[in-house]
């Protein structure tokens, strides 16, 4: 058994909504191992995205601990959190979030620019990432010239180019048709196997379920069911 890469202990998150405290996560205990392909499933408002945001160091738990790659999220400064995301965590968003004025190549290259990699290293890594997602011939296109499926594949390449330890994907197939969704999932599954990257999805898409190694059911901020598929 591999070591836990993500560990949550009694993690809670509350938000003030309309003058009241809304508890998005309720004393969650969770452990994710390295190279897992895990889905967090649940209806809207169940706390999936909040959980991903805390793991991705974009947010902090209100109480409890969240440890990612041995780093306590709560105690990270803005700079340390940015560094953790830059080097170790890749994000894939539901609406792709590609930077519109950059080409496909430049979008994928962005994370490497932040890592101050040399031009040669960047070019090599970007082309390799585009090759993983089958978009090496679209490198010079701008996002507005791509289909939804292609855009999401660029987003995967952008998340994977820095070969992060963890990829967090928030509803990655929600805006895609069935064919594209399966294509994306196959790509991610392959990367998970080939590179050993830990994938953590939030989804309520039935199509995703078949690809997952583990499904964590969330309801009202609590884990309802945690099921290993194999």
């Amino acid at each position: 058994m591999s070591k836990p890469i993500i560990q949550l202990k009694n993690t809670s998150k509350t938000y003030p909504i309309a003058g009241k405290e809304f508890m998005a996560l309720k004393k969650l205990n969770l452990s994710i191992q390295e190279a897992e392909f895990t889905g967090i499933v649940g209806p809207s408002g169940s706390g999936k995205t909040t959980l991903l945001n805390i793991i991705g160091s974009l947010d902090k738990p209100s109480t409890g601990d969240a440890t990612v790659l041995g780093k306590e999220i709560k105690s990270l400064s803005h700079k340390e959190a940015a560094s953790l995301r830059n080097f170790n965590i890749g994000f894939i968003f539901q609406v792709f979030n590609l930077l519109p004025v950059y080409t496909v190549f430049e979008n994928v290259e962005f994370a490497l620019l932040l890592q101050k990699k040399s031009a040669l290293e960047r070019k090599k890594a970007v082309m390799k990432a585009l090759e993983w997602v089958g978009l090496e011939d679209q490198a010079n296109k701008r996002p507005d010239k791509l289909s939804g499926g292609e855009s999401q594949r660029v987003a995967i390449a952008r998340a994977m180019v820095k070969t992060p330890k963890i990829v967090l994907a928030d509803e990655p197939t929600a805006n895609l048709d069935s064919e594209n969704a399966h294509g994306i999932l196959k790509t991610m599954k392959k990367l998970n196997k080939d590179l050993g990257t830990t994938f953590l999805f939030s989804t309520h898409d039935e199509k995703v379920m078949g690809y997952l190694d583990r499904i964590i059911h969330l309801r009202d901020g609590s884990i309802e069911k945690d099921k290993k598929m194999k």
Binding site: L58, H78, S83, R85, N86, F91, N97, L99, P100, L114
Partner: peptide, 14 residues
């Protein structure tokens, strides 16, 4: 959204 993406990709707010 672009600002959020920059931060998610590892850019510090500053």
């Amino acid at each position: 959204k672009e600002i959020g993406t920059y931060i998610a990709l590892g850019m510090t707010r500053l």
